[in-house]
């Protein structure tokens, strides 16, 4: 299971282990962590919620897209749900490829796609309130208001 939603803390090494291959010269990981300050506002903690079954499918779709675009790539992604404190790990993306340029590019592609099509939401908790984050704040998910046609089906 290379694509997972997890209620428990993510073991980074175990995500990396899923993409180890004899043909790979490079593995990149992206580790999304909870940052304390956004636009000068202090976050206390976050809650991540997922439409879990669909989120797993969409992570798998991203994996398929990457393997089509980058020859020889292996991909594993785990996204956390529940309450996360500052510096906690929200997502780990591991990509292995024969050559390093591809490992960086494919990894970057994965995080951008997660922010477009994977049904996961975060609720920020500040000292003076809380809010579900959508396109009204720092993120513009669905850059054109909604996923584009290419996102609708695999």
């Amino acid at each position: 299971m290379n694509f997972e939603i997890s209620k428990d803390p993510i073991d980074i090494q175990s995500v990396i282990d899923k993409v180890v291959q004899r043909e790979a010269g490079a593995i990149t990981t992206f580790i999304g962590t909870v940052r304390e300050l956004t636009h000068g506002k202090k976050t206390l903690y976050l809650i991540y919620e997922a439409y879990e079954s669909m989120a797993v499918k969409k992570l798998e779709q991203i994996g398929t897209e990457i393997k089509e675009r980058w020859n020889g790539a292996e991909v594993a992604i785990t996204h956390r749900t529940g309450k996360l404190d500052i510096t906690d790990v929200a997502v780990v993306i591991a990509v292995s490829t024969p050559h390093r340029a591809d490992a960086y590019e494919a990894n970057r592609y994965a995080i951008e796609r997660i922010k477009e099509i994977v049904p996961i939401w975060k609720k920020e908790h500040w000292e003076d309130g809380e809010e579900w984050i959508g396109n009204q704040l720092e993120t513009v998910a669905y850059p054109k208001g909604k996923p584009e046609a290419k996102d609708l089906h695999e």
Binding site: G32, A50, P119, A141
Partner: peptide
């Protein structure tokens, strides 16, 4: 994901997906 003109069939599960903010 489904477009607004898709017709709902018996047994379909429909979910409403606000702009996502994972990652």
């Amino acid at each position: 994901f489904a477009s607004d003109d898709e017709v709902i069939q018996a047994g379909d599960t429909i979910a409403f997906i606000p702009p996502v903010s994972g990652g």
